Measured scan of single mutants.
Amino acid sequence: SEEKKKAKERLERLGASSELARELLDRANGNAEKAERLLRKLL
């Protein structure tokens, strides 16, 4: 979806690899905010 694509791009801008961004979104069930929080914990 367009929303998921935007979320993935945002995670990548924050420093996630394409693969990591995809994994985070999967774990967050597509929830962009939750995926971002997970990423911030990792960085």
Rank of each mutant, 00 (worst) to 15 (best):
E12H: 06
L11R: 00
R10I: 08
S18G: 08
R22Q: 15
A21C: 03
E9T: 09
A7F: 08
G30N: 08
R40C: 14
A28N: 05
L14V: 04
R37K: 12
N31G: 02
A28G: 02
E12I: 14
A16Q: 02
K5V: 13
E12R: 08
L43F: 07
E3Q: 11
A32E: 10
A21Q: 02
R37L: 09
D26V: 07
A21K: 00
A16P: 01
L24N: 00
L24P: 00
K6C: 08
E12C: 11
L43W: 06
S18P: 15
K6E: 11
L20D: 02
R37T: 09
R37E: 15
K41Q: 15
A16S: 03
K41H: 14
S17D: 07
D26G: 06
S18D: 10
L14Y: 03
G30A: 03
A32H: 06
R37D: 15
K5D: 13
L25N: 00
E3L: 09
R22S: 14
A28M: 10
S18W: 03
S1P: 12
N29G: 14
R27T: 07
G15Q: 02
K4H: 15
K41W: 11
N31P: 00
L25P: 00
L42K: 03
R10A: 08
R40Q: 13
R10L: 10
E2M: 13
E36S: 03
L24E: 00
L38Q: 09
E12G: 04
A16M: 03
K6T: 11
E23C: 07
R13K: 13
A28Q: 02
E3C: 13
L38M: 14
A7G: 09
A16E: 01
K4Y: 15
R22D: 15
S18E: 12
D26S: 08
R10N: 07
L24Q: 01
A21D: 01
R22W: 12
D26P: 00
G30R: 01
E23R: 09
N29I: 04
A7I: 13
K5M: 12
L24C: 06
D26C: 10
L20F: 05
L25M: 08
L42N: 02
L42T: 06
R37F: 05
K8E: 13
N31C: 05
L20M: 09
D26R: 10
L38H: 07
A32G: 08
N29P: 01
R10F: 09
K6H: 11
G15D: 01
L42Y: 10
A16K: 02
G15W: 01
E19T: 06
K4V: 14
R37Y: 06
A21F: 06
A32T: 08
R22H: 11
E3D: 12
A32W: 13
E36L: 11
G15R: 02
L11E: 01
R13N: 09
L20H: 04
E9H: 07
E36Q: 03
E3T: 12
L25G: 02
K34D: 15
E36Y: 02
L39Y: 07
A28V: 11
L39C: 02
L24F: 03
E33A: 13
L11S: 01
E3P: 09
E3Y: 06
K41T: 10
E23H: 11
K5I: 12
K8L: 15
S1E: 14
E2T: 12
L43N: 06
A16I: 08
K5W: 07
K41D: 15
L38T: 05
S18A: 14
S17Q: 03
G15P: 01
R27A: 12
E23Q: 12
L11C: 02
A7V: 09
L43I: 11
K4L: 15
R40T: 10
